Simulated scan of single mutants.
Amino acid sequence: MTLEMRELQGDDLFSLLAIVGKLDIKDDFIALFEGNVDSEKVVTMDHKNKKPSKAQIADMAKKEKEAEKRGMEAMAGLMQKVLMNSGKLKTDINVLLADLTDKKPEEIKKLNLKDYTGLIIAFFKKPELADFFSSIASLLQ
């Protein structure tokens, strides 16, 4: 059984903040995202054609790949934290997943292990979740 999840909305912020708050991971969270802060925002242009040079484009692509890798590592680390603390988060997670799938928490609890795990993984792959974590990380710094 494959459940479809709706896109995260503004009102979901409160559920997400409650879950993150129960994990007590502020320091871990900041450490996971520290590497993604890029202090070099100015890109000098090639003085002849007013575009970044090939070397600068290659450097920007390399930095983008590194940031993407750190982002994936951060998401994996956060997912591990959630799973390790699932006992104290079980109700919150089931309520959130139920809301996102337009089901009742009791229906989510009764999913077989494969479907339940798939739902959690699909949740962590949501692009808007990465936006949420990036926003929270910038607020905590």
Rank of each mutant, 00 (worst) to 15 (best):
V43D: 10
D28M: 11
E106H: 04
A137C: 08
R6A: 13
E34Q: 10
M60W: 03
I93A: 01
M84I: 12
L3V: 14
K69H: 12
S138N: 15
S39A: 10
K69Q: 14
K63T: 09
Y116A: 04
L96P: 00
E64D: 11
V43K: 11
K90F: 00
Q141S: 13
L13M: 13
S53A: 05
K88E: 13
K50F: 08
I120N: 02
F132N: 06
K114V: 08
S135L: 11
K22N: 11
R6K: 15
K62W: 03
F133G: 06
S134F: 06
L78H: 00
G77Y: 01
I136C: 02
K109G: 06
G10H: 12
G21D: 15
D12I: 04
D24S: 11
E66Y: 06
E73Q: 13
A55G: 10
T91K: 08
I25P: 00
V43M: 13
T117R: 04
I30K: 14
T101S: 09
G10L: 15
A122P: 01
M84H: 09
I108N: 03
M79R: 05
L89T: 00
S53R: 04
G71H: 05
L129T: 05
D24Q: 14
P52T: 05
G21E: 14
E66I: 09
S39Q: 09
I120E: 03
T91S: 07
N94W: 00
R70G: 00
K41Y: 12
I25A: 13
L78C: 02
F29P: 05
D92S: 10
V37K: 12
T2N: 15
A130E: 08
S134V: 08
L3N: 13
I136P: 01
E64Y: 10
A74P: 07
K110A: 15
D27H: 10
E40G: 13
M84F: 12
K125N: 15
I136G: 01
E64V: 04
D24V: 07
A130I: 08
I30D: 11
A58D: 15
V37H: 11
I121M: 11
K51F: 07
Y116T: 02
M75T: 07
A76Y: 07
K110Q: 15
L119V: 01
V43G: 09
A122V: 07
Q141E: 14
L96Y: 01
